[in-house]
């Protein structure tokens, strides 16, 4: 099976985010970058499919030089080859990224293209669907279970209020959701194996962006919590507050 995994490098979920002075971008100076957690599910699934059915896993990432670390993490988890699409920055417009990825994906003739359902930084949730449209192949996203039988794929995905099971055939695109698998930690041996893999670098000319970030804002400060009481006597009051004030019940 010839599998591609598209990954994005994102700030660590534990990083305290600071904005640049113009409030249009995240200040990257003190940020620890990681492999987008949803992409970890995609990488893990790709590696498991390779281990079960044979084949090769190609890791593809678009962005500045620093994204190589995310590529290396995916390789350490079991990827075989890697392509780095070099740009100065991550485009704000998902369509621009998708078009650049699609041109590379077309060449690769992949049976399966896996990626996270979304990146945890800009949260657009668009990449699997746009890639599906650009490549004109089935795209199924928010997938929590994937089964392969020859050329046929069965995917279970989360929808509002339930699950949906879809059948389709390869080639196809899968957007991975939490629950699809439990991603492995890269082992020390995997890390050293990844070190020896040459990452193929390609310069890409990205199209002009139709979508621009006007400004970013910090979330409003959280108001302090309230302790209603510390015994069973407080339960009625807690229920009342949850119902009337918090309006969650």
């Amino acid at each position: 099976m010839n599998i591609a995994v598209c990954v994005k490098q994102t700030p660590d979920t534990e990083t305290r985010i600071k904005l640049t002075e113009d409030q249009k971008r995240v200040d990257e100076s003190d940020i620890n970058f990681i492999l987008n957690p949803y992409d970890e599910f995609a990488v893990e699934q790709a590696v498991r499919l390779k281990e079960a059915h044979g084949g090769e896993v190609t890791v593809i990432s678009l962005g500045p030089d620093r994204v190589k670390t995310a590529i290396r993490t995916a390789l350490a988890m079991g990827g075989d080859r890697a392509i780095h699409l070099k740009t100065e920055k991550h485009p704000d417009d998902p369509l621009v990224t998708a078009k650049a990825l699609a041109s590379v994906l077309k060449e690769g003739n992949y049976d399966l293209i896996l990626l996270g359902k979304q990146a945890i930084d800009d949260d657009h949730n668009q990449m699997p669907s746009i890639l599906g449209a650009l490549l004109d192949i089935p795209a199924v996203t928010v997938v929590i279970k994937l089964e392969v039988d020859g050329n046929k794929l069965t995917a279970e995905r989360e929808i509002d209020g339930g699950h949906e099971i879809l059948e389709f055939s390869m080639p196809a695109i899968i957007g991975a959701q939490r629950g699809l698998n439990e991603p492995r930690y890269p082992s020390l041996k995997g890390i050293m194996r990844a070190k020896k893999i040459q990452i193929e670098e390609r310069e890409v000319a990205t199209e002009p962006e139709q979508l621009k970030v006007e400004s970013l804002q910090y979330p409003p400060p959280k108001s302090p919590g309230k302790i209603v009481g510390d015994s069973a006597d407080a339960v009625p009051e807690l229920l009342r507050l949850l119902h009337e004030e918090a309006k969650v019940l």
Partner: peptide, 22 residues
């Protein structure tokens, strides 16, 4: 933030950083 006041870990190679992070 964190314990690396002088940015000492910036000197790590990619695989050293990856081992530490893992």
């Amino acid at each position: 933030e964190g314990s690396d006041f002088l940015g000492i870990f910036n000197r790590l190679s990619e695989e050293e950083r990856l081992v530490m992070q893992t």
